[in-house]
Design a protein around this nucleic acid. Structure first.
Length: 484
RNA sequence: GGCCCGUUGGUCAAGGGGUUAAGACACGGCCCUUUCACGGCUGAGACAAGGGUUCGAUUCCCUUACGGGUCACCA
């Protein structure tokens, strides 16, 4: 049974990088029918940010990454908040001390700060390693502050990463890291190992910034005699300037992206393809829903090189996901925006939704597309001149007059796009005009805009008979005024 | 600086000893169309550099360059 976890620390909002980690963890578990767990790592009291945990819950909820175990949902391995597991870290630390794999250290910060090796880098000098047991006991008894450090053995440590392959690091590179802090809390690295083991995590999936500290984990697992999980390190994500994506560099949070109009499913889809692709013959399709990703995801296809977040492509993906929405769903999402700009009664907003669905990048774009319905915006008569349509002001007058005459023949009950279009093209033929020479002026007179989400006669159908004839008249008046 | 990792078009990327080195986004052109968009077609654009190994390297090895990560009582 695969058990993976997303283990963020509640110190800020979630970026696309955090989300991708969560997504891959989710996919790795779900692909094998496994369990996805959320664990909050809040061992650093000082960095706790108000509301950060809620933002994490909300982001996972909105993107559909439902966790099977975690804060709020429970599970057999709880609690899922590290600060509530405080008591579980001391026993293994003491076990390591007893085995000679760790030791007490009473050094104070001041002394540590003066430490520096020949290259000017700090590394603990094992000052407290040889303290006699009696002294350790008396110091602890007298209430002296202490930490417990891991004793890094000589040699080198090798481990296998599912993405990066076999990695070997000389133990001399590692410091005798602190396992338990003087406030009694475990350090991140230690808590991770203890909790991952306690929660029976099988796949440790995280960013590659942890790659070089993984040997410390391996040493810990070995020293405690625990089964080693599978390590899956993800390539980092970077900003367009090549720096690591981070909150510090102003990367947008997922919550912000959603607020900007990105569909959660588009964000998920995009995140999945940053540093991963289905590979081979499948590599050509890119639009997938979360449940489809579960089926095709394969950790073996995760890339080793970092990739750059590109909002342009995210926009495209967003548009694709909007097009893929069931029309009712899209309409429900678009309606609030449409109501903002269209107050005219008897306008079919569902029809407006249908017309805009395939043309928007963000759902909110639909509003601006139809803002001519209530009132025509002021426009210049140059709009009537269109080279490709072979129109100019003079032809527009002819076209509008022909249209006016033709449309007046159509009773309100027959006022449909089909009849209007037929009438318009017949009128064009009768007046020896090209279709464009009548349709383009109509569209201009009805919308006052160079681009609209639909054609001239569709707009006429939408506006209704009275409003259409009114605007044709107004268009002719404008043209007449300009000529006179 | 030490150590670790990486480098295929502007971006995401497939591939991997012999290929015309896929595809997508963005960009240009054309077609369709009542505009734009959609759709279709098409164009330009890449294996960081140098050495090896090999009959043959983008692919394997080494070196260099560049980029990133990491070296905390932060996570």
């Amino acid at each position: 049974m695969v058990r993976s976890r997303f283990a963020p620390s509640p110190t800020g909002y979630m970026t696309i990088g955090n989300l991708r980690s969560a997504l891959y963890e989710y996919l790795i578990a779900k692909r094998d029918g496994g369990v996805f767990i959320l664990r909050l790592e809040d061992t650093d009291q000082a960095r706790y940010v108000e509301g950060a945990a809620e933002a994490i819950f909300e982001t996972l909820r909105a993107t559909g990454l439902h966790f099977d175990e975690g804060p709020g949902v429970g599970g057999d391995y709880g609690p899922y908040i590290q600060s509530e597991r405080k008591d579980s870290y001391l026993p293994p630390a003491l076990q390591l001390v007893a085995n000679g794999k760790a030791y007490y250290c009473f050094c104070e910060k001041d002394r540590l700060d003066t430490l520096a090796d020949e290259r000017g880098l700090k590394k603990y000098d094992r000052h407290c390693l040889q303290l006699p047991p009696e002294e350790i006991k008396s110091r602890i008894d007298s209430g002296a502050a202490y930490v417990i450090r891991q004793l890094i053995p000589d040699g080198a440590t090798t481990f296998n990463d599912q993405v990066f392959g076999t990695i070997t690091i000389d133990n001399a590179e590692m410091e005798d890291q602190i396992l338990l802090k003087s406030d009694g809390m475990p350090t991140y690295n230690f808590a991770n190992v203890i909790d991952d083991n306690a929660m029976a995590i099988t796949h440790v999936v995280r960013g590659s910034e942890y790659l070089t500290s993984t040997p410390k984990y391996v040493l810990l697992y070995e020293a405690l005699g625990w089964p080693m999980p599978l390590f899956v390190h993800l390539p980092l994500l970077q900003n367009p300037d090549g720096t690591k994506i981070s909150k510090r560099h102003g990367a947008k949070s997922i919550v912000e992206l959603i607020a900007d109009g990105y569909l959660p499913e588009a964000i998920i889809n995009y995140a999945a393809f940053l540093g991963w692709s289905p590979g081979g013959d499948h590599a050509t399709r890119e639009i997938f829903a979360l449940d489809e990703l579960i089926k095709i995801f394969d950790a073996a296809q995760i890339s080793r090189s970092p990739s750059t977040f590109d909002e342009t492509k995210l926009k495209w993906m967003n548009a694709e996901h909007i097009k893929a929405l069931p029309p009712e769903k899209y309409a429900a999402l678009a309606l609030p925006h449409l109501r903002q700009v269209v107050k005219t009664p008897n306008i079919d907003l569902t029809e407006l939704a249908r017309i805009t669905q395939s043309r928007v990048t963000f759902i909110s774009d639909c509003a601006e597309m139809v803002d001519f319905i209530d009132a025509i915006p002021p426009y210049d008569i140059d709009l009537y001149t269109h080279k490709k349509m072979k129109t100019d002001a003079a032809i527009a007058v002819q076209g509008l007059q022909a249209a006016q005459a033709a449309f007046q023949q159509i009773p309100a009950e027959n006022w449909t796009h089909e009849t209007l279009h037929a009438a318009a093209t017949q009128a064009a033929e009768a007046a020896s005009l090209k279709n464009g020479q009548i349709l383009w002026p109509i569209r201009t007179a009805l919308s006052g805009k160079p681009t609209t989400p639909c054609g001239a006669t569709e707009i006429a159908a939408l506006l209704g008979r009275d409003k259409t004839l009114q605007r044709l008249e107004a268009g002719l008046a404008l043209l007449a005024a300009a000529q006179g």
